[in-house]
Design a protein around this nucleic acid. Structure first.
Lengths: 119, 119
DNA sequence: CAGGATCCAAAAGGATACTG
DNA sequence: CAGTATCCTTTTGGATCCTG
């Protein structure tokens, strides 16, 4: 394997801790969108430092987009999935099916139709 | 999202650095099997400590199996994919297709039919 | 509200040397 | 050959405080 192998690079993009989980959380929002504070509280154990650095990375990769609503004060920031990351959801879904088949599953979930993982 | 969400746990299993890359490398071997030393040299930048700890983890998860051939001296150790991880290859393939579609690709590869990523 | 700055502790990863 | 042991560097996590 060469260091710049496509799969290797892909794992750099989406294989980091929190990256896919952030994408999953955004997918639960209306129009694949969530406000920063809502996103943050849904990822209860993440710290603002880690969250904002992941958001920047994902934005650079164009996997999420950011919009600031200045009509209210203080302003609200919203993050949305892009076309790219929406297509990634299929892969997340397949990962879940695979996991359930091979018994990597959560106690409270254990099904393919769980409100926490909306598949 | 709860801490024990299925997808969250799945990422613990296969989302760690090197885990999927090791599975990919084993898939290139005859019968999805490679000798330790061959595996190691195909992952040129990995260190023995990290490699052996990942191999133990993957073995515990039953994603790989280990066999020692004592007929030669010194003995040779072989690692193979299991049924579980063979089914994961489909997901890796989908990840590659997704990456190529959104232009995360390697210079030398850039195709869906590359000997380094055998898809 | 949405982060950025700072400091610190813990964990993961890497380099190298060594052994059954 | 297939790893361990040891030491060190880097990354990650957490807490807290601050600001436009």
């Amino acid at each position: 394997m060469k260091a710049d192998c496509t799969i290797y690079k892909t794992l750099d993009v989406i294989g980091k801790k929190w990256s896919l989980v952030i994408i999953l959380e955004l997918s639960k929002g209306k129009n694949n969108t969530k406000q920063y504070s809502v996103l943050k509280s849904s990822l209860s154990t993440i710290t603002p430092k880690v969250l904002s650095s992941r958001l920047k990375e994902l934005e650079n990769y164009k996997l999420i987009s950011k919009k600031i609503d200045t009509s209210s004060s203080p302003a609200h920031t919203f993050y949305s999935l892009t076309k790219s990351s929406v297509e990634l959801l299929t892969i997340l879904k397949d990962m879940k099916s695979w996991a359930l088949k091979f018994n990597i599953k959560s106690e409270h979930c254990g099904s393919t139709n769980c409100k926490d993982c909306p598949f």
